[in-house]
């Protein structure tokens, strides 16, 4: 299945176009939910979303976990986001990579010096009791054209090396948050399973691995509480 959706948010206007299984629902004055209206994605699916946000905040969330299942090829999800003087709060639920599935996600986020971003993502290797398939998720963030973060996370529940001490260390749940443009915020201390990594530029990434999805998400929540202890969260 191939589908494309786009959302354009400007002062006084919030427009979108959609194609199943990518369905967009407005759920607040500055909030939309992405609804996977046909389940999946399955291997071979190619889904694309483009986002333009200028002069206003936008929160984009998903209604449920996304379950990536095997198919004749990789399941691809491609996101292009362009922000001006705006704040994007991307809060995706867990993406569950079923055994034998192959998930490729590609997020390219172009910011300016006036943009603010809070990008949260969670990946789960497998459903309950299942080792999980392969995922490659690349996120590239630029500020005024200069690269701030370019990271392709390589996971594979069936690959011994990638589950080992230089991979995920046996943990099946990874949650991440990327913050850009929030000013002078606190950097939470690292624990054995969660660390905040400040960029050379204006922001940081927080990574958390967990034995359960809740543990990884909670570690991110706690780190964000520490980051925004003295300022207002996004």
């Amino acid at each position: 299945m191939r589908a494309e959706a786009s959302i354009t948010a400007r002062p006084g206007a919030l427009h979108w176009s959609e194609q199943p299984p990518l369905t967009v629902r407005r759920t607040g004055s500055d909030r939309c939910h992405l609804v996977a209206s046909a389940g999946g994605p399955l291997g071979g699916d190619e889904l694309a979303l483009s986002l333009v946000v200028r002069g206003r905040p936008l929160t984009l969330a998903t209604t449920a976990a996304t379950v990536v299942q095997p198919g004749p090829g990789p399941a691809r999800f491609r996101v292009r986001a362009e922000l001006g003087d705006a704040c994007l709060n991307w809060h995706a639920g867990h993406t569950v990579i079923c055994a034998d599935a192959d998930y490729r996600a590609d997020f390219a986020i172009a910011l300016t010096g006036a943009s603010r971003l809070c990008f949260r993502e969670s990946l789960s290797l497998g459903r309950h009791g299942e080792p999980g398939g392969a995922a490659r998720t690349r996120i590239r963030i630029t500020v005024d054209g200069a690269p701030l973060l370019d990271q392709e996370t390589v996971l594979d529940g069936a690959d011994r090396a990638l589950c080992g001490p230089a991979g995920t260390s046996g943990m099946r749940f990874l949650s991440t948050a990327v913050l850009v443009g929030h000013g002078d915020v606190a950097v939470p201390p690292a624990t054995g399973r969660c660390a905040a990594l400040p960029f050379d530029g204006p922001g940081m990434q927080i990574l958390a691995l967990g034995e359960t999805g809740r543990a990884a998400d909670r570690a991110i929540d706690e780190a964000l509480t520490c980051v925004f202890a003295k300022t207002d969260p996004p």
């Binding site: 490659r136 690349r138 590239r140 370019d150 990271q151 392709e152 996370t153 390589v154 996971l155 990638l162 001490p165 230089a166 991979g167 995920t168 260390s169 943990m171 990874l174 991440t176 690292a190 624990t191 054995g192 399973r193 969660c194 660390a195 905040a196 990594l197 990574l207 958390a208 691995l209």
Partner: peptide, 15 residues
């Protein structure tokens, strides 16, 4: 250019 990475080494590097 490639940007392949895994999470655990980044987490431990900070610790």
């Amino acid at each position: 250019l490639p940007s392949a990475s895994t999470p655990f080494p980044d987490v431990l590097a900070q610790l």
